[in-house]
Nucleic acid binder design. Sequence first.
DNA 1: ACCCATAGCTAATCAGAGTAGCTTTTGGGC
DNA 2: GCCCAAAAGCTACTCTGATTAGCTATGGGT
Lengths: 194, 194
Amino acid sequence: MPRAGLNAAKVVEQAAELADEAGWDGLSLAGLASRCGVRLPSLYKHIASLDALRLEVSALGLRELTAALTSSVVGKSGSAALHAMADAYRTYALAHPGRYQATVSAPTGEHPGQDQAAVELFQLVKAALSAYGLSGDDAIDAVRALRATLHGFVHLETNHAFGLPTDVDRSYRRLVEGIDTAIAGWASNEQPSN
Amino acid sequence: MPRAGLNAAKVVEQAAELADEAGWDGLSLAGLASRCGVRLPSLYKHIASLDALRLEVSALGLRELTAALTSSVVGKSGSAALHAMADAYRTYALAHPGRYQATVSAPTGEHPGQDQAAVELFQLVKAALSAYGLSGDDAIDAVRALRATLHGFVHLETNHAFGLPTDVDRSYRRLVEGIDTAIAGWASNEQPSN
DNA sequence: ACCCATAGCTAATCAGAGTAGCTTTTGGGC
DNA sequence: GCCCAAAAGCTACTCTGATTAGCTATGGGT
């Protein structure tokens, strides 16, 4: 009986692909085992439990999302950075719906990698928005607003919640332009530099 | 052995309360049965399956959400209506997190009540935004933008995704003001009435 | 060639969803 | 008040998926 040659990293990667194909709720150890070519209990040589696996997939998604946003903003700032991040965000979420949902709805457990990845993502977005001249709670409001906007749209889109056939790309572009204008407006309230 | 006196409506209501307490993913027939004071198989006298029950809870949530938004906008239009709806939306979602999540992530099955409730909610929001003077695809973009914004914020909030202790109410208020400004700006592009 | 860490296995337990079929309550007609 | 059919509830069973226990065989390092 030849071995499958699994390890923890491969198992998590396969789980992420399964989640992308079958949905975050469709991620099961039974499905993962057959995809990996082993029997279900063999997975426990590489993971602690289904919940632990979900945390790993969540951390993987956060790391990948952070990497995608990071490379999207190099050399950009302000409005250009915001638009670039918005595009990269939606592109990643549509390409990897399972791991994207994992980044939001994973169990809020104690996983150092997951927490650290979330903090890094927050810092990245905050830095990218620094050109808007916000500080303190205003900067936090801006990060939250941008995150809520992008997440809301993408989450609804991946849940097929937009019933009408109207161009979804255009709706997204206008929404991003709107949030860009809104955050820029906050900045002028903060820094009356005229 | 006295009867519990259940019927389909009571079962769905109990399921909605259970979903609010245990989370949408924590909604199980086992938990529902013990909450209703009956054995698990007895539930099948009132529902067809767990998936069917989830559709019912989703439809209930959509109806309640539509009712809450409807009563929030009576006598208002434009910006006042938008702010009123935003407050009612978040209030409902925070008070009923389980059924709120059901409105988005229920199985996309064929449930006439669910579909109809979704259409009614869309029409309500579109009508409430009519004072912005948008038409055609612009109106659809506005409804999508508002929905994405409110949903994104509330979904992240109910998933405890805002790590920082910074005032969440204030972040929400500023986000709603931002989307109000953005949609108003679209309108001026459409109707150069000056 | 040997050894041991470990990848993988079978077998078993447990919980939850769903089905089959029986029993009992209950409300309406007489 | 009595009778009966519909419905409400039950027990027993099956099936699937997660998890644990314990056995076996592989294969890299010596």
